[in-house]
């Protein structure tokens, strides 16, 4: 963050962090379209992706408005490079198999819902309005992800093994969701409190993993950097696909 932080620039960063996370996860989930194990799951994943892209349009639209430099939500989505993206590392991780996708979804949704709930009382009504709208949709995401993680975790030996491997693989990306920095500090006391979000996350995740007969990984290693633009190698590939058209044919519309 090269610029000096004040409340407006902090709000811009705060909004792009949420919007980038919903954008990249929405894109990742949309990669399943036409490839899911069953038609119903294909439709459910496409709907989830659609909700997340809808949230993105609102979050990045508001970020662009707050920034006041004439950029649009599309400009932010299609014309920034990876170091300017501030999504969580969790959401850019590859889909893997269906189980790994659902595990990533559950870990994110269990954070997303209480985070949005906290934002419903944000003093800026534009932020609170988006959170109020998105909360209703995300409540369905959590239910579905939890249901599938339990069914696959407590399923066959094969599905259980894969779900445990997915959890172990993604676990180091969990801590970043609850980290805070100067952006959150600038918006205090209005930014969601990480301790409370973590408590709500635990209250969803721990019983769900227990029902899924999955073991909480012992590692305390945490990967961070997404929120400040330091990404894994995967994000560049996502952007190459997502942004290709606007990069190759600037301003193309249809």
């Amino acid at each position: 963050m090269a610029q000096i932080l004040n409340r407006d620039t902090a709000l811009f960063h705060f909004l792009t962090r949420i919007g980038d996370s919903t954008l990249i996860l929405g894109h990742r989930v949309s990669e399943w379209c036409g490839h899911s194990p069953m038609l119903e799951e294909d439709i459910a994943l496409a709907n989830t992706a659609l909700d997340l892209i809808g949230h993105t349009r609102m979050w990045l639209g508001l970020a662009a408005e707050v920034e006041g430099k004439g950029r649009s939500a599309d400009d932010l989505a299609f014309l920034r490079d990876s170091m300017d993206f501030t999504n969580l590392l969790l959401v850019e991780q590859p889909n893997g198999d269906f189980g790994q996708t659902m595990m990533r979804q559950l870990l994110f949704d269990a954070w997303h819902l209480p985070y949005l709930n906290a934002l419903k009382s944000f003093p800026d009504p534009r932020v609170a309005g988006i959170a109020e709208k998105a909360t209703k949709e995300v409540a369905y995401h959590v239910d579905r992800a939890a249901d599938l993680v339990v069914r696959l975790g407590d399923g066959t030996h094969e599905s259980h093994t894969r779900m445990q491997a997915a959890l172990d693989e993604l676990w180091p990306c969990v801590g970043e969701m609850f980290s805070t920095d100067e952006v959150d500090a600038m918006l205090a006391p209005d930014a969601p409190k990480p301790d409370r979000i973590r408590d709500a996350w635990d209250a969803t995740i721990l019983p769900t993993l227990a029902r899924a007969t999955l073991a909480v990984p012992a590692t305390r290693f945490t990967r961070q950097g997404g929120k400040t633009g330091r990404h894994s190698e995967h994000l560049g590939h996502v952007l190459a696909q997502m942004q290709f058209l606007q990069r190759a044919y600037p301003g193309a519309t249809w």
Partner: peptide
């Protein structure tokens, strides 16, 4: 399924 042919519907 909780999701259907449009965002507002379930199957």
């Amino acid at each position: 399924s909780q999701f259907g042919s449009t965002p507002c519907k379930a199957a």
